[in-house]
Design a binder for these strands. Structure first.
Length: 112
DNA sequence: AATCTGACGGGCA
DNA sequence: GTGCCCGCCAGAT
């Protein structure tokens, strides 16, 4: 059947939903969300989806696979992301979350 | 219409 | 550890 769908940015809202599931005091990565959503979604797609994250999505809890705050420039100010994370109890040095593996939250491990 | 880029990540030299 | 390449999709120029 010929689907008349032109844009499939259905995954965009999926990304936002998963991001909302990240618990307070925890963080996840773009790649983890991508893997959870399926192999056709890559970390880069997740990053792209986050540029339009609606209010209520804790975008600051999504960092790259090394725990670095690579998306901080997309917040109101470049230090907003770090501020929010520190407020949630995280330790950040040089835009990098310390003990990242201990606060990392993996959606695939929780649901899949 | 074609090309480059982007909040990324894994693999390989 | 460093550096380059590939993949995936949509938007911008």
């Amino acid at each position: 059947m010929q689907s008349t769908e032109k844009t499939n940015h259905n995954f965009v809202s999926d990304v936002h939903e998963v991001a909302k599931l990240v618990p307070y005091g925890r963080v996840t990565s773009y790649g983890a969300i991508a893997h959870y959503l399926g192999s056709r979604i890559t970390a880069r797609m997740v990053g792209w989806a986050m540029h339009a994250c609606p209010r209520g999505v804790p975008a600051h809890r999504v960092v790259n696979s090394k725990g670095e705050l690579t998306g901080k420039h997309h917040f109101k100010t470049p230090d907003t992301m770090q501020k929010l994370l520190e407020k949630e109890g995280h330790r950040i040095v040089a835009d990098k979350i310390l003990q990242f593996s201990e606060v990392f939250w993996n959606p695939s491990a929780e649901f899949g």
